[in-house]
């Protein structure tokens, strides 16, 4: 393994950014509305230059109204989920941890269902209620998962799993009593779906994403030490309690953010950090940005497939991530074993 230098981090991130850019352009090109690469480049160029009136109105509509917002949402969700996954895997020191392992998605789903029961479809309310549900869950799990005044990984994991099943039971109860209501939207939401435009301004969501990503990144060298053992890290002067708290809150907020706008998209948060580890090593200083970019790439590819493989019908992106993600993961895992 080559030593990790700032240069290497920049090189890897640059490479992933380039891949992401290519994927975005290809994704912009794909879809039911026929539009060529040169027309997309022209539309993008003129759109950025503020010459909207020179673009045919339908190109504008398809590129800026439909495809780009969806891709932007995908990048946000992918980056948030993968970073959260990497964070939880370190925090819980468990390779099976994913963003939903502590019950965040169940809490968000419960919030969403409760909002459907109380105030059916007020725009944006579902997202806010989902986020509130996620926040309430992580707070409860935090207090359940403490031992001796600080977060204890096995206790936290158990508390999270138990909370998740408890919340799922409540969800099922609400579902059965709700049978007269529309659960269709909810079904898509639980499978993970990017087809519904976000009711909340994407710029706010990106702002939160970047702030949280930054704060998790500040703990990355400490996380490397914690992974070798909490005692050792403490001896080396790491404030283990603070690092765990930052990662716990940060990863939970990212998960809540992603789940509330797109529903529970599975697999990405589990797979992408592992894939990045296999490709670029286990150093969290590189792993965190690489996971964020890798997650964005994965979701954009998955969503592009989701809206094109059975076009014009659209699949939920959650189905696509698992379908495409699992074989890639198995391939990389077997190759590493050899």
């Amino acid at each position: 393994m080559k030593p990790l230098t700032p240069g290497r981090i920049l090189a890897v991130c640059g490479l992933l950014l380039a891949v992401l850019f290519v994927v975005v352009v290809i994704s912009l090109r794909m879809g039911a509305y026929p539009i060529s690469i040169s027309e997309i480049v022209m539309t993008l160029f003129r759109g950025v230059a503020g010459q909207r009136e020179q673009i045919p109105s339908e190109f504008w509509l398809v590129v800026f109204g439909l495809r780009l917002p969806r891709i932007a949402l995908g990048i946000l969700v992918g980056a948030a989920l993968s970073t959260a996954g990497a964070g939880f895997q370190a925090l819980l020191r468990n390779p099976l941890a994913d963003p939903y392992v502590l019950g965040v998605s169940s809490g968000a789903a419960l919030g969403a269902i409760v909002s459907l029961v109380i105030a059916p479809h007020v725009p944006g309310l579902i997202q806010i209620a989902a986020f509130a549900g996620a926040a309430a869950t992580i707070t409860a799990v935090y207090f359940l998962g403490r031992r001796g005044g600080q977060l204890d990984s096995p206790t936290l994991l158990l508390a999270g799993i138990v909370s998740a099943s408890f919340l799922s039971a409540i969800i099922m109860f609400l579902m059965t009593t709700l049978s007269g209501r529309d659960i269709r939207g909810m079904a898509f939401w639980l499978m993970g779906d990017l087809s519904s435009p976000a009711a909340i301004d994407l710029r706010w969501l990106y702002f939160i994403l970047l702030v949280v990503l930054g704060s998790i990144y500040t703990t990355s060298s400490d996380l490397n030490l914690i992974l070798t053992g909490e005692q050792e890290a403490r001896h080396l002067g790491v404030n283990v309690k603070r690092v765990k708290l930052v990662v716990y809150i940060g990863a939970s907020v990212l998960t809540g953010l992603a789940v509330s706008v797109s529903g529970a998209i599975g697999y990405v948060g589990l797979l992408v950090p592992h894939v990045m580890r296999m490709l670029f090593g286990t150093d969290y200083r590189l792993l965190i940005p690489a996971s964020a970019l890798g997650g964005a790439i994965a979701i954009v590819i998955a969503d592009t497939l989701a809206r094109t493989v059975v076009a014009p019908t659209e699949l939920p992106v959650g189905a696509m991530t698992a379908l495409a993600g699992a074989p890639v993961f198995i391939y990389l895992m077997r190759r590493k074993v050899r």
């Binding site: 479809h121 799922s168 099922m172 079904a187």
Partner: peptide, 29 residues
């Protein structure tokens, strides 16, 4: 967990009706 929820839904899907009320409210908004 997710799988369990999905089962719950698919069996309730048939029983699901619409969100007419939702449509109306959001329509007003």
């Amino acid at each position: 967990m997710r799988a369990a929820i999905c089962c719950g839904i698919s069996s309730t899907m048939l029983g699901s009706a619409t969100r007419a009320a939702e449509l109306r409210q959001s329509g007003a908004a």
